[in-house]
């Protein structure tokens, strides 16, 4: 069995309120982004951070809170979409994981990167869970640094109205996140299960590539079809995962969905409730209002937030629900144990 032994994050100090971002648009858009999405703020790098430094900061926070050392890690997997180092230069190789491993002293760790859009980190957890269950490794880290707010800055120059395919780009914020997954003792429940599927018919609903003549990237999203497809498929996958684990939705204490917008999370959870005939013990976790959509890091950023606020406690059963471009739908079910929660106790 495997457990989530540590969680860490790194948030830039600079706030970018939605009102300020919308003031910077080139065109008079008439969009009330805060009303549409619930997002009133996000953290952004003002040049002091790139993808690598955010990932490294989160990895160090994760090691500190879990009382582990870099040398304890058998594997480091970086799962970010953005791989910017030294400004807006995207590094395809060497893998970012190798630089993170070197920075945190994970000298004997095997390293490679995973790319699976906003489901990257949870895909990494799935990979580590498999290896740990069959005894191939003892402990690994999944890490991501998303310096992705530059997509929003680019979109602010191009968005004309609410129908723009770059509207979702304005919801993005920067963050780093890291999780440690390790072998657990037989009496600890840890990770109950992880399950993913890719509904590739919808693979072209959200596409991003480097901007042609501007630094950074641009992202084009068909938000409504994407949301419809997600709402259609998520309850079924979640229901099947719960059945396999012998659980009901009411047995889940906290659902942490991917953080796209407050409205999308409310709609999605309403569909889950209608489809599965119940709801989790607590309302779905939402941190999107204050941090925006931080891509592959959202679940971990929210997990740390909830633990630090004392809302997720030792023994609570948590469902991390992935929704990502691809489209990827997945769930990681786990029990937050004393070790994970205690690491952040000083924040209470």
């Amino acid at each position: 069995m495997a457990r989530i032994a540590g969680a860490g994050r790194c948030l830039p100090d600079t706030h970018l309120p939605t009102a300020e971002l919308m003031k910077s648009t080139r065109h008079r858009t008439g969009i009330d982004l805060e009303r549409l999405t619930g997002i009133y703020d996000r953290r952004v790098s003002s040049g002091e951070h790139d993808s690598l430094s955010l990932a490294t900061g989160a990895a160090l926070d994760c090691l500190r809170s879990s009382h582990r050392r870099g040398a304890d890690l058998d594997v480091v997997i970086n799962c970010s979409i953005t791989k910017y180092r030294g400004g807006l230069v995207q590094w395809l190789e060497p893998p970012t994981s190798m630089a993170v491993a070197e920075a945190v002293g994970a000298t004997r760790a095997m390293t490679f990167d995973v790319s699976n859009a906003c489901a990257g980190m949870l895909t990494g957890v799935f990979i580590l869970n498999n290896w740990i269950r069959r005894g191939a490794i003892e402990r690994g880290m999944v890490v991501s640094g998303e310096y992705i707010s530059q997509i929003g800055r680019n979109a602010a120059r191009h968005v004309r109205n609410v129908m723009s395919r770059e509207l979702a780009s304005l919801t993005l914020g920067d963050a780093g996140a890291a999780l440690i997954v390790e072998r657990s003792s037989a009496d600890e429940e840890g990770i109950t299960l992880s399950g993913f599927t890719t509904v590739a018919d919808h693979s072209r609903l959200c596409l991003a590539w480097p901007a042609t003549h501007e630094p950074g990237a641009r992202m084009f999203t068909q938000s409504r079809p994407l949301q419809k497809a997600a709402i259609r498929s998520t309850p079924q996958l979640l229901g099947e995962a719960l059945d396999e684990a012998g659980l009901k939705i009411g047995d889940i204490d906290h659902v942490i969905p991917h953080q796209t917008s407050a409205r999308a999370i409310r709609k999605g959870m309403a569909e889950v409730t209608a489809s599965l005939g119940g709801e989790p013990a607590h309302p779905a976790v939402r941190t999107v209002e204050q941090f925006g959509n931080t891509a592959s890091t959202t679940h971990t950023v929210a997990l740390v937030e909830e633990i630090q606020a004392g809302r997720i406690r030792a023994g609570d059963r948590v469902a991390l629900v992935a929704l990502a471009s691809g489209i990827v739908i997945g769930v990681v079910l786990f029990v937050a144990d004393e070790g994970l929660v205690a690491g952040h106790a000083h924040h209470d």
């Binding site: 395809l92 190789e93 060497p94 893998p95 390293t111 490679f112 990167d113 995973v114 790319s115 699976n116 489901a119 990257g120 895909t123 993913f196 599927t197 890719t198 509904v199 590739a200 018919d201 693979s203 497809a229 259609r232 498929s233 079924q236 996958l237 099947e240 691809g326 990827v328 997945g330």
Partner: peptide, 20 residues
């Protein structure tokens, strides 16, 4: 298996691994 999952269908899971 590119379509919406059907009950009991495992479907296909896809992602990229990058290591040069």
């Amino acid at each position: 298996n590119p379509s919406d999952p059907y009950p009991g269908g495992a479907g296909t899971f896809s992602f990229d691994v990058a290591n040069g």
